[in-house]
Design a protein around this nucleic acid. Structure first.
Length: 145
RNA sequence: AAAGGAGGCCAGAUGAUCGCUCCUCGCUUUAGGCGAGGGGAGGAAAGUCCGGGCUCCACAGAGCAGGGUGCUGGAUAACGUCCAGUGGGGGUGACCCCAAGGAAAGUGCCACAGAAAACAGACCGCCGGGUCGGCGCGGAGAACGGCAAGCCGCUCCGCUUCCCCACCCGGUAAGGGUGAAACGGUGCGGUAAGAGCGCACCAGUCCCGAUGGUGACAUCGGGAGCUCGGCAAACCCCACCCGGAGCAAGACCAAAUAGGGAGGCGUUCCCGCUUCCGUGGGAGGAAGUGGGAUAAGGGUUGCUCGCCCGAGGCCUCCGGGUUGGUCGCUAGAGGCACGCGGCAACGCGUGUCCCAGAGGAAUGAUCAUCGCCGCCCGCCUGCGGGCGGAACAGAACCCGGCUUACGGCCUGCUUUGCCC
RNA sequence: GCCCCCGUAGCUCAGCCCGGAUAGAGCAACGGCCUCCGGAGCCGUGGGUCGGACGUUCAAAUCGUCUCGGGGGUA
């Protein structure tokens, strides 16, 4: 998975998709942005970005989106399986550099993987279930708490 | 050198790696993918303050209302923009600024202060005249008071030329603390006092004429004592302009809901054709279809008229579905160069170039080198090394302006200071 | 894209249409009275670039233009 491209099919474009990820995904808060991660049935991970007008002017918002897109594109291997990811950029990200973005993204996804591994082990001990590491939406909703 | 003021230009460059998007070509193909080549933010892309193009609105027609503009001439597709001028104003100057029609069409407002704030009027003042006036003067009286017969206060009568005080009548606007603004200014004459009442000069206004200019206007001459305050970014008047909406305009394709519920209004007439019924043939009737006139109602984004649409139709409310794709979408009032016309804005001609088209929304990230600026160190005063910095800001249908934000460079200009 | 509203004391608002000089009201703040103390009540006090700039006017919170910030409607 050393693919560093970002095709149109790897982007979230529908309001429905955004709503689903925001409601059912795992929320990961960092100083620069808020990540929502939800495992997906699609062959590839998809990215959606939201930047509020309160963050800054058009130039500032566009730059934030580009940096987030770059981080996602360069670090796809951090996701253990295909996921839909929504990134909500916070105001503190205005002054941050590309390196800051990378650092925050890495730590956030490390936290995500640790949480998922723990869940999987619990589930394995309860009952030997499917080998496919693709949790359905119902467990995803439970992950938020 | 320092301040100032005008105009123009640029918006770091090159390369590598990893990406995004569009176009062309080729291969492959189920959407799609791969390869090659090429294009990919701005001077303001911004604010949305104006003006157009373009598209649609069963036509855009008239009047009213509403909005806008406001010296002149030109430029332009158009403008509230630009250019050239006129008239004002500011600055020592280079230069800059001005919503700059009408206040002798009308209405309204001008706080406080002040006599008075707008066809003038008259508080003080000045002047003239008047009075059972006061005051003054003269005479008389004796009741009352002071008191040494007299005299004074007092009472009555008469006079009053002048001066002073009060009041009344009239003249006048020279002077008057005020105020943002006070009914032309100065001087002389004149007068009871005064006043454009008269005269001289000056300032302004209006009228007439001449000359120059397309014109705004300028200059000159003559006349009228005409002196008529300001505010129309107060209402308003005059002249000119404005149909409405906006690319989410609009066109097509696909999908979905299923002709959903409640209330109200109207459910008419004429003509042609076809079929059927009827009949001796007709008249007539029913259904379908095409056209016309209307009704209810609607459109004409404020109102009125007018116009237009309009027969299982229209209006209002509630409920439900879709909220995907393609086109519009970038070749244009286009850029650049040269020539010509014009003071200029700009126009014309020729040649040449094709120069962003996204759609949860592309144009990016990292690194290196060079160039620029600042600081520090070495130091042969030119170079080397290190660190840091590089503004405002991101196309969303397209143009022309305006305004606002902002880094730097260049050109010639003005004033002041110093040196030669 | 189109359209609208707001900005005045620490806070919530008047005043603006139709200009006139001390810009008001309530709450809050501060001081005093009252009370053993506090609250409530009563009396008093301070606090304003009227979002900013330019203009019109004798005079601007008010009128005009530009601008900044905040909020909303609509397809």
């Amino acid at each position: 998975m050393d693919d560093e491209r970002l095709r149109p099919s790897e982007r979230l474009r529908r309001t429905r998709d955004f709503q689903r990820v925001l409601q059912q995904g795992v929320k990961l808060v960092t100083p620069l942005f808020v990540l929502y991660v939800l495992p997906s049935a699609e062959p590839r991970s998809r990215l959606g970005i939201a930047v509020s007008r309160r963050v800054g002017k058009a130039v500032v918002r566009n730059r934030a989106k580009r940096l987030v897109r770059e981080v996602f594109r360069r670090h796809k291997s951090l996701l253990p399986w295909p996921c839909d990811v929504v990134v909500i950029v916070r105001q503190a990200a205005v002054q941050a550099s590309y390196r800051d973005y990378v650092r925050q993204y890495q730590t956030a996804l490390a936290r995500y993987r640790r949480g998922q591994d723990k869940q999987r082990e619990e589930r394995k001990s309860e009952a030997s279930l499917s080998c496919r590491p693709l949790p359905p939406g119902s467990t995803g909703r439970g992950d938020r708490l």
